[in-house]
Design a binder for these strands. Structure first.
Length: 490
DNA sequence: TCTGGGGTCCTAGGACCC
DNA sequence: TCTGGGGTCCTAGGACCC
């Protein structure tokens, strides 16, 4: 696939090899949001803490502004540690000789996710408007395929193909020699975000996702880095392996032991040797290091799991643990219901000091929406850790099933073919007869029977199975009113 | 002073089926 | 009499991401 590209021409896009992909990454997003509503924070070191309350020392750094980073404060750092590096501004009392210098003190704020989501909504509106395809990765990050909106042609009069065309107005702003149309468009997007959402972003522009991702990171904050198709390898080559998306501390160490320190090293390494050390991921990372990534930008899909967890001061107390799990279970079940999804697997997480993560899960015979069942299964699974001290507990539901919403057509597939393969899955836009389909899916419950038979046999699951059956009846009725669900798909 | 909380994907091993 | 082989589902844990 990669072979046929003719250098210098702009007409080879048919195979998709010269796509234009943007990666948009908001700069210290939470801190930027706080500045948006509190302009006096501009230029100040700002630390937004998770699990942090005003005046406390617990929690961790969710986001630090660049001014705070200059003091060494980093993301995920415990608040008490950040406070060592950068005292709290509120503690900087000019009357107190022992108080920190106000000039070297920061503002510490608790996370306010609801507000950040509002701002993210404004950002998202711009992105949606600017992209052919938009993939939101998180509240502050997204990929855009903009191939049909712009091009790699030189801006201005460069490309012969443009002879009959007027230069696009957006490119007219500055000296346009080595500039591409893509760069001009990226600048436009960036400026629109700043203007319409009020927060700064960094943008990476490249012919594929993994390179765009690295590019957006290369000149933060307020960056705009453009990597045209011919420059991908040379752009990546000098970077350390850790800068490649998908390489974390463990893989970085493994690679270092193989003598691989840079993307160039990785690009030159033997894919088979990498596969031996890293499994399937080896060759994949090798491709990324060479800028070879043909993943398409696909819209964000439905979630695969929903979970909630919270930390405790380490305790073995049964009542505390059950109360915590009960609250987490209720919250997870509520969110699942809000999103109109059923779940077939319920699990817990129990973290024992110092940091031993245990997970347990149980699958039901069929998908349910049943908060009581989430709690009782979670309690059941928790029993194994009855005597253990835990420092964190979590509850998760997975094996999610959104079929009862507009995707009811999926229920029309033969029971048991389980795959629900991509083909016709156009996110519900298509099915006019959703209600009918859903009802038949629910009532001709043969699908349920088949799964029952597979999963529901073991006698150990008897009580669960009973509950599950009840719930299935319940769910059959809920399906009819469950149509609201797609609404929160923003 | 415990590294917060929400996710995704991959792998290995076991159970079970044909 | 040899373990034989393929396939799926489930669970648990690990690595990684923001």
């Amino acid at each position: 696939m990669a072979g046929g590209t003719l250098p210098g021409t702009a007409t080879d896009e048919a195979g998709g090899s010269d796509r234009v992909v943007f990666h948009v990454d908001m700069d210290c997003f939470y801190a930027s949001c706080e500045r948006l509503r509190r302009p006096e924070l501009a230029g100040e070191p700002v630390v937004v803490g998770m699990g942090y309350e005003d005046g406390e020392t617990i929690g961790a750094v969710a986001t630090a502004s660049y001014e705070a980073r200059a003091f060494g404060v980093e993301s995920a750092m415990p608040i008490f540690e950040a406070l060592d590096l950068l005292p709290r501004r509120a503690d900087a009392d000019p009357e107190d000789p022992d108080a920190p210098d106000p000039e070297a003190a920061g503002r510490y704020l608790p996370v306010d996710l609801d507000f950040y989501k509002e701002v993210a909504g404004d950002v998202k509106a711009v992105l949606r408007d600017c992209a052919d395809t938009l993939r939101e990765v998180s509240v502050d990050e997204a990929y855009l395929d903009v191939t049909d909106r712009t091009a790699w042609d030189a801006a201005g009069a460069g490309a012969a193909a443009d002879a009959a065309e007027d230069p696009p107005p957006s490119a007219a702003a500055g000296p346009a020699e080595a500039r591409t149309l893509a760069e001009g468009y990226a600048r436009h997007v960036k400026e629109r975000i700043e203007r319409e959402a009020g927060v700064p972003a960094s943008v990476g522009v490249a012919p594929n996702m993994s390179t765009a991702k690295v590019a957006s990171d290369a000149d933060k904050p307020d960056g705009l880095v453009v990597v045209p198709p011919g420059s991908v390898e040379s752009f990546l080559a000098p970077l350390s392996t850790a800068e490649i998306h998908g390489i974390g501390p463990v893989t970085e160490r493994t690679l270092a032991e193989m003598g691989i320190e840079t993307a160039a090293d990785l690009a030159a390494a033997d894919p088979d040797g990498l596969a031996d050390e890293l499994g399937e991921r080896g060759p994949e990372l090798h491709r990324r290091a060479r800028g070879d990534d043909d993943r398409e930008v696909t819209p964000t899909g439905l979630p695969k799991s929903l979970s909630r967890e919270s930390s405790l001061s380490p305790t073995a107390d049964g009542e505390t643990k059950r109360e915590t799990v009960s609250a987490l279970a209720a919250d997870v079940a509520r969110r699942a219901r809000e999103r109109g999804c059923l779940y077939r697997t319920i699990g817990i997480k129990a973290v024992e000091p110092p940091y031993d993560v245990n997970t347990r899960a149980r699958s039901l015979s069929g998908p349910v929406d049943d908060p009581d069942l989430v709690e009782s299964v979670a309690f059941d699974l928790l029993a194994e850790f009855a005597d253990d001290r835990v420092r964190k507990l979590g509850v998760r539901v997975s094996n999610l099933d959104f079929a009862e919403s507009d995707q009811a057509t999926l229920g029309g597939f033969e029971p048991g073919d389980g795959e629900g393969t991509g083909g016709g899955r156009s996110d519900g836009v298509s099915d006019r007869d959703g209600a009918t389909e859903a009802r038949s899916a629910a009532t001709d419950g043969d699908g349920g029977k088949l799964t029952d038979w597979v999963g529901g046999e073991p006698t150990a699951a008897a009580s669960v199975g009973d509950d599950a059956e009840e719930s299935e009846a319940r769910r059959a009725t809920e399906r009819d009113d469950g149509q609201a669900s797609l609404g929160d798909w923003e």
